[in-house]
Each structure stands twice: as C-alpha cells, then as structure tokens.
C-alpha cells in the first residue's frame, strides 16, 4: 500500500504547484496588480522620470544631451523671462482661483434654491465646461480682438468709449483678459461640484437652525460653510492645480505675449522646449513648477484632513 501511495502523492504535489500558486492570496494579489503597475510605470513614472532627467541635460531636439546637473536651473535663476512667467503664473492662479471660487459658490447657492427652470439653468451653467477649451479660447480671442472686439464696439456705440480697447496688446490688459477667460471656463467646475456638496446637506438641518432662530446669514455661516468645507478643500485643490498648469487658453489667446506678459510657466516651457528646441531647458522650467504644486497639494492635504466631527467610530 505504502509503496503504491508514494508516487501518487508526489504527483499530486507536482501538479498542484500552479494551482497552489493560484490559490495563494499573495501571489494572486501580485498578479492582479501587474496591469495597474504597468500602466502607472508606462504613463506616469516613466514620463515623470524622463522629465526630471531631461531637466538635468542640455538635450536639444534631434540631438543627444549630456548630463549637466543643475546648470539649467542656475541659468533660469538669472533669466528675467522665467521669473516673469513665475510671477504671471502666481498672479493668474491667485486671482482666477479666488474669483472662480466666489462666483462658483454664489452660483451653487443660487442653483440649490427652488428656482423655475432649475435643470435648464444647471445645464447652462455647465456650458463653458462642455465647450472645448481651444474653441472657447478662440471665441475670447475674437472678443479681445483689437479691431473687432464686441466689448469695445458695444462700449463705443453706447458712447462710453471713444477708442477701441487694446485688450491683448497691453501687458496688464492682457493679464486681466486671460484671467477673465480662465474664470469663465473654470466656474462651472466649481459651481457644479459645490452644488453637489450642498445637496448632501440635510434640509432638516436648515429647518432646525431656522427654529433655533438663525437668520439666512447665520445659516450660511454656521451650517452651510462648515458642512461644505471638505468639498471646498477638494474643489479648490483641483481648481488651483488646473489653473497653475494651464496651457491651452494662454497659448491660443496670447501665446504668452505681449512681451511675455502672459507667459505662464507651462507655456514658457513649451516655447523653450518645442518651439525653441531646447528640450532640457523646457523640462527644467516644467520641473520648477513641481515645488509650487507640491506646496499646493500639501496645503490642501492638511486642510483636507478630516475634522474631528467627520471621523467615524465611537470614542
């Protein structure tokens, strides 16, 4: 009996190597993660690493670069156009984000009320978000055109102006113009997301506050704002990141002009790397954005940390 049984047992052991592996939670877990890891490496880690590497080289289009350490950054630090683009980017991000938040919150509060044609109004609010950026940028380009601007035309016809406004020819006009275009485009995202947040607040809280004697302003201050704060943190993080890294609007409307007055770090990076052919320098400008973005993320990370009242569990 024992003599016969032994080879059978060995066979069972051998054939079960694969099946045992597929029954192992660890092995299977690793297998299931392979596609996700492959995608992350291919499309996230590799480009990021390549960007870092390029920033440390003097690669030009068509040529093989040498490693030059931080030389790109050293030369950028003496480059007034680079510093101008940093200023522009911060200016663009700060003003556009603040106004987008204010208008978005206002619209969200408005759309959360009982209004006639509510769903239609919600759809209209979403429109700027639906139109392709480049398309809306071209529309703004026409609105800001020095000869055909509808704004100038209306103001002149109304007798408020005598000359056409040079929207995109003057540095500060141009800066404000692109900020406004960005606001127009970014408001729907903020408004709709905040509206979704508002709708999670139970109406009975407002009723309770009403009975407790709260005025409209007090209801906003003591109920809406604290209840909405987690959503506000998420929305503003995304809003700041998207504004900081904006490229399409600027590139279509001004291409960074006049005299680099609207160059953002993203557009300058593209101009130096692709148009100018200095891949290494362009990559370095992109890399210079990273500290700002990390700072923004960290800020929201600590802001996002769930307050004590949101944490579950007892005790």
């Amino acid at each position: 009996m024992a003599v016969i049984a032994e080879p059978v047992a060995a066979q069972v052991k051998r054939s079960s190597l694969w099946s045992r592996a597929f029954e192992s939670r660890n092995f299977l877990g690793a297998m299931f993660m392979v596609p996700a890891i492959a995608i992350l490496i291919l499309f996230l880690a590799y480009p990021l690493a390549l960007g870092f590497w390029l920033g440390m080289t003097d690669t030009k289009i068509g040529g093989v670069g040498r490693f030059i350490g931080f030389q790109n950054f050293v030369s950028l630090s003496k480059d007034s156009v680079f510093w101008l683009s940093v200023f522009n980017t911060l200016f663009y991000t700060v003003f556009a984000s603040i106004v987008k938040f204010a208008i978005g919150l206002y619209l969200a509060l408005l759309l959360n009320e009982r209004l006639p044609f509510k769903s239609m109004m919600r759809a209209i609010v979403l429109l700027p978000f639906v139109v392709p950026t480049v398309l809306s940028a071209i529309a703004f380009w026409w609105i800001y055109d020095s000869q055909f601007s509808i704004i100038s035309w209306v103001l002149i016809k109304a007798g408020l102006l005598t000359n056409y406004i040079d929207f995109l020819g003057d540095p500060w006009n141009a800066r404000w113009s692109v900020v406004i275009a960005n606001i127009w485009r970014g408001v729907p995202f903020v408004a709709i997301t905040l509206l979704a947040g508002l709708q999670t607040i139970s109406p009975s809280l407002y009723e309770a506050a009403n009975l407790d004697g709260a005025t409209n302003m007090q209801r906003f201050r003591h109920i809406t704002l604290p209840m909405l704060s987690p959503i506000i943190a998420v929305v503003m993080t995304f809003s700041v990141l998207m504004t900081f890294t904006d490229f399409q609007l600027i590139y279509t409307i001004t291409r960074g002009g006049p005299i680099n007055a609207t160059h953002l770090m993203a557009t300058l990076s593209f101009q130096r790397a692709i148009t100018g052919g200095n891949l290494g320098e362009g990559a370095a400008i992109s890399n210079a954005m990273i500290p700002f973005l990390v700072a923004a993320i960290l800020l929201s990370f600590f802001g996002l940390q769930r307050s004590r009242w949101q944490q579950g569990g007892r005790d």
């Binding site: 139970s202 009975s204 809280l205 009723e207 309770a208 506050a209 009975l211 003591h222 109920i223 604290p226 209840m227 307050s307 009242w309 949101q310």
Partner: peptide, 15 residues
C-alpha cells in the same frame, strides 16, 4: 418660540 425634535434628529454634525 417653539422647539422641534425631528425624526432624524437634525443634529448639527460639526458641533
């Protein structure tokens, strides 16, 4: 000058 207890209590979760 009335006070109401709601079915879902309507307690302010952040307080």
């Amino acid at each position: 000058d009335i006070a109401m207890v709601f079915q879902n209590y309507a307690l302010y979760p952040h307080m």
